[in-house]
Design a protein around this nucleic acid. Structure first.
Lengths: 150, 150
DNA sequence: TTTGCTGCAAACCTTTTGCATGCTT
DNA sequence: AAGCATGCAAAAGGTTTGCAGCAAA
């Protein structure tokens, strides 16, 4: 994983550039996300922040994560069920191995995606039941300026 | 796309095997999902069902989609924002091109995923901003019988 | 006739928002 | 001192559930 300290500094730098204030709660949330290995949920971040700042509200966690998302400093894994998960350590798209039993999320270390399924299965020992491979972007029509009615 | 009629028959067969009743609302929902080309949301299915059966409730749509999901007869695209989308025409994992502007979802026709991003970009004309490539399965630990606390 | 299915409304859960107060800059 | 950030509570989606009546088998 990326060095948490370095990620933390990068995130602070991004906030500074955007002229956001550095509050204790915000810094704690940053630290948690920068060192996230377990792709925490909002609730998990919330619980952890409250260990140091017990009065922190859920709304504050949501608002800070939203800001970090906008700055590209945290990656949101949008699962429908049971809340999204976040990765502030590697805030760029990358494959995830999601265990549907224990909810663990692992990052397989792959460079080339040939025969990805079999390969991931061999490398991680996972029994793959399903996968997501969705690409987000702008379609040709919208690139020409039209919007929201295709 | 797969033949809607054939998919419809497959879905009915699956329901019969599972001893579910064939109500008019249910059949209509099946038909809509079997011929879905646009990966409809629950709300869209609901609106469409109500064109033929105006008293149909949202709960019924949700309940039927849930059943079809369990039978593997519909694929759920779990987007956090604005509700999930469903594909009853090709109820198996496959890549999707999601336009973040008009919300259109296309199915690129690819067999081999080499250099997938550039390739998809060239083939579809999409400007790719992001992607999802999540694999769902069971990790080695859980395959050994342990659960939900990794 | 039996039991699953439907419609309605309320409940749930996650996320967002309004507002008054507080704190960073 | 100015204005963003916080905490609290209410609101806002989307989805699920309880229950009584209805209908498929």
């Amino acid at each position: 994983m990326a060095d948490p300290k370095q990620r933390f500094d990068e995130m602070i730098e991004a906030l500074r550039r955007a002229n956001f204030r550095l509050t204790p709660q915000r810094l704690e949330i940053l630290k948690i996300l920068a060192s996230s290995r377990e792709h925490p949920s909002v609730e998990q971040v919330y619980d952890q922040v409250r260990q140091r700042f017990p009065t922190t509200s859920l709304a504050t966690v949501y608002r800070n994560i939203l800001k970090l998302k906008e700055l590209g400093q945290v990656l949101e894994l949008g699962f429908g069920e049971g809340g999204n998960r976040y990765d502030g350590n590697r805030p760029f798209p990358h494959p995830h191995m999601v265990c549907v039993e224990c909810r663990k999320i692992l990052d397989p270390d792959i460079a080339n995606l040939d025969h990805f399924t079999e390969r991931l299965s061999r490398m991680t020992g996972f029994k793959i039941l399903n996968h997501r491979m969705d690409f987000f972007g702008i379609c040709p029509r919208c690139q020409q300026g039209r919007r929201r009615d295709g």
